[in-house]
Design a protein around this nucleic acid. Structure first.
Ligand SMILES: [Zn+2]
Ligand SMILES: [Zn+2]
Length: 273
DNA sequence: GCCAACGTTGGC
DNA sequence: GCCAACGTTGGC
């Protein structure tokens, strides 16, 4: 004689809540335990998605289960756990949306230095490559102060993020070799980040400059629904990258906002050259 | 009798 | 404190 029967409590399912109206999801631990999903039937519990919220003896836990399943579904691109479950049963695989931009991520794609000298006008946004010891390979954003004469080897630049003084009221202006100047690259192609794999090279904006880094690890985590913004509404997960500087052996954990792919530069067409 | 799944518990 | 495991039962 169990105490369960002594208490005589077995609440009835309401029949109308989200749980009651859901099918077996087939992916929760309770479903996986069921013989129809190949389980050994040792847990013997109702599907976590199907649990009736009215009959639940532990509402908190039931809600948490639902939330976890919903979040899992979203991470796979489905709007709701039940839709994901339905798709899975139908044999369709929901996967994270994959875009296929025509981008190749090659080793060492920081090109174009000194390539577009004839296009430098007053105020043109450029990047300046450092050649001093310890900063080799770092690029800082700058603007051309005045267009260089035709036979010039140097040009005067005003850095965007470097300052004359500690207070940071006046931007640093200096002469830079034209061979260390390039036009600022175009915006990163949409979706390139989904192609990034460990071993790829990227550029990291850090300490006011761009640094070449090597990708060590790529991890994905689902975005909680409350933090999905309108702008990024099609994105259900976000990437976290572990990268290492090619110059220093320093590792960084970064989001995707601070990185960009390297740039391959084509020669100028004859008209500009 | 059969099946779904409830409440309890022991082991972690 | 949680949860896998299980004996057991309500509904059919
Ligand atoms: Zn389930
Ligand atoms: Zn219900």
């Amino acid at each position: 004689m169990s105490s369960a029967s002594a208490q005589g409590t077995k609440r009835k399912n309401c029949g109308t809540c989200e749980g009651c109206l859901s099918p077996n999801c087939g992916m929760c631990s309770h479903c996986k335990d069921m013989p129809q999903f190949g389980g050994s039937y040792s847990i013997r519990q109702r599907c976590k998605l199907r649990k009736c919220i009215m009959a639940s003896s532990r509402v908190e836990a039931t809600l948490k289960d639902r939330k976890e399943l919903a979040s899992l579904a979203r991470a796979h691109g489905a709007k709701k756990a039940s839709l994901w479950a339905a798709a899975l049963r139908a044999g369709n695989e929901y996967t994270t949306a994959v875009r296929t931009p025509s981008v190749r991520l090659d080793e060492g794609l920081s090109e174009g230095w000194g390539a577009h000298t004839s296009m430098l006008l007053e105020d043109t946004p450029v990047e300046v490559r450092m050649d001093e010891e310890g900063l080799e390979g770092v690029f800082y954003l700058a603007n051309i102060v005045s267009a260089p004469p035709e036979d010039a080897t140097q040009v005067r630049v005003r850095y965007r993020d470097l300052w004359e003084t500690e207070e940071g009221t006046e931007r640093l202006v200096e002469e830079a070799d034209l061979t260390n100047i390039r036009l600022q690259p175009p915006p990163s192609p949409e979706g390139y980040i989904d192609l990034v794999r460990p071993g790829d090279s990227l550029e990291l904006f850090y300490d006011e400059g761009w640094w070449e880094v090597l990708v060590l690890e790529v991890s994905r985590k689902p975005i909680e629904p409350e933090s999905i913004t309108q702008a990024g509404a099609d994105r259900r997960d976000e990437l976290q990258l572990r990268v290492i500087s090619k110059i220093y052996d320093k590792e960084h954990d970064v989001g995707t906002a601070d990185v960009r792919p390297g740039v391959r530069v084509s020669p100028l067409p004859p008209f500009f050259a």
